[in-house]
Design a binder for these strands. Structure first.
Length: 437
RNA sequence: GUGGGCGUAGUGUAGUGGAUAGCACAAGAACCUGUGGAGUUCUUAGGGGGAGUUCGAAUCUCCUCGCUCACCCCA
């Protein structure tokens, strides 16, 4: 293939017509569900002050350290393409004084995000998130409701094996204590760890818990569990979350090694995955079965973030779903989406007078909200029927010289080939009825 | 940032040093200016780019670009 001179930047994609339907479907489902729960939509700019993210997400996180697209404006501002949605929403919350809105303040968003990283399965440099943020609500019930909302969205998208992995990473107080405990534990077992974890054990010990290396796993299984070392407040909160989860009947899985890479999380963290059907054990597929499914939704509580960005002490929690990941599971599971804009009726015309009349008739269909299609550039009836067939309409309307003179039109049902003569003036009405069935 | 695989018409592919690079689908046209799903015929269109080895390269080597998968990390 001769590659054109210009192509999409690495890790970014044109979203073509086929995929548009998926994005649209997910957006529609999300909006319906989320509106029911009283969320208001918010759109923030694609770029923000870079400092917002280094402060909010954390300077030492990978996202800020190496994955941000940054730019200097002519005026000298240092901006970044947004790598995630929570921090900008918090910024907007503060900027517009939303703390004086009745609590809880519930916001949602849908849009593109950018991270400069190596693309691979389910990760792109430009991707889409649909996310929720709730402010001024400290009760553990809100944590669970957010999970419930995403669960419902996924259910509505026909996901069947949804699992919520959940953990608590405490607050600043008990986390530092636990970290110390863990570092000490790991120090005594340094030699048994993989090279990677040796490095991590000092700087980011929580990450070691997540290591897949077998030898590390063995050590980890004896490590002190965070859950046993939560302070009383966090413990109570987590207990509440679990109780509400039970009450809501949501399928969850306690994952004491679940740690998230963004600094702002406190207490509850969770991820939602869909178990992709266990392929029967072909040799090739064996690896795939063992692989952890990509998480579709990630989120948690961030009680310190609002204050960190200059607001009052405000409890908050939220989560975001990766649209591309959801789409890829939908495709894998062959979950189909149908466009509401696929045409149901095709207008075929023969001869000049018929063509002129068709032009008007086509507009009448639009007004009647019946999606119609045509091929006015073709003159042969045969070709027009061929096209109608390819498009897959239910009915083709045939209008020729003779019909125009007699004030009628032929309705051909494509499936059966049966034809019916209808008065031209009544055609919209008749088609409305037919399509209702 | 590190490592593996890959790159042939719009799409999916064949061809592992030799002649006009083959096939399928898609697209367009004709058979056929009043009835589709089929058929036949024709048309459009191809080795990512660059360098090298060679009498000769889609095929071998190097560089580069891109895709993909994995590590890291994340949605």
């Amino acid at each position: 293939m001769k590659k054109p001179k210009f192509q999409c930047p690495t890790g970014m994609h044109d979203i073509l017509s086929g995929d548009q339907e998926y994005y649209q479907k997910i957006f529609d489902v999300a909006r319906n569900v989320v509106s029911f729960y009283g969320f208001q939509k918010i759109d923030t700019p694609i770029v923000e002050q870079a400092e917002l993210f280094s402060k909010g997400v954390g300077l030492d996180t990978d996202i800020v350290e190496k994955e941000m697209y940054t730019l200097r404006t002519k005026g000298g501002d240092f901006l970044a393409l947004r790598p995630e949605g929570t921090t900008p929403v918090v910024r907007a919350y503060l900027e517009h004084g939303m703390f004086s809105l009745p609590s809880p303040v519930k916001l949602w968003y849908f849009g593109p995000f950018f991270r400069y990283e190596h693309p691979q399965a389910g990760r792109y440099r430009q991707f889409h998130h649909m996310g929720l943020e709730v402010f001024k609500e400290k009760g553990s019930i809100m944590d669970v409701r957010i999970m419930q909302i995403f669960y419902n969205i996924l259910r509505e998208l026909k996901f069947k094996n949804i699992v919520i992995n959940i953990n608590s990473i405490g607050d600043n107080k008990c986390r530092t204590q636990y970290k110390r405990l863990l570092i000490n534990f790991l120090k005594s077992r340094q030699s048994g760890l993989c090279a990677n974890c040796k490095k991590r054990s000092k700087k980011n010990p929580l990450r070691v818990l997540d290591c897949k290396e077998e030898k590390c796993q063995k050590i980890i299984s004896n490590a002190p569990q965070f859950i046993d070392h939560l302070c009383e407040e966090c413990h109570e909160h987590f207990k509440g979350v679990l109780e509400f989860l039970d009450e809501a009947g949501l399928p969850y899985n306690l994952d004491s090694y679940l740690v998230r890479g963004l600094d702002y999380y406190t207490k509850t963290v969770f991820e939602i995955t869909e178990e992709v059907r266990g392929v029967s054990a072909n040799d090739e597929d064996e690896e795939r079965i063992q692989k952890k499914p990509l998480s579709l939704v990630g989120g948690g509580r961030y009680d310190n973030l609002v204050k960190l960005l200059g607001g009052k002490d405000t409890p908050a929690c939220g989560a975001a779903a990766g649209i591309e990941r959801i789409i890829s599971v939908m495709k894998e599971k062959e979950i189909k989406v149908v466009s509401s804009y696929s045409p149901k009726v095709f207008l075929a015309q023969l001869g000049d007078s018929a063509k002129k009349k068709s032009l008007r008739l086509f507009e009448d269909f639009r007004k009647a909200k019946i999606v119609a299609s045509e091929s006015f550039n073709r003159d042969s009836l045969r070709d027009q029927l061929k096209t109608a067939n390819k498009i897959g309409v239910d009915y083709t309307l045939i209008l020729g010289q003779k019909e125009v003179l007699e004030g009628i039109i032929i309705v051909r049902e494509m499936k059966t080939g049966k034809q019916q003569i209808v008065k031209f003036d009544k055609i919209i009405e008749v088609m409305k009825k037919k399509l209702k069935k």
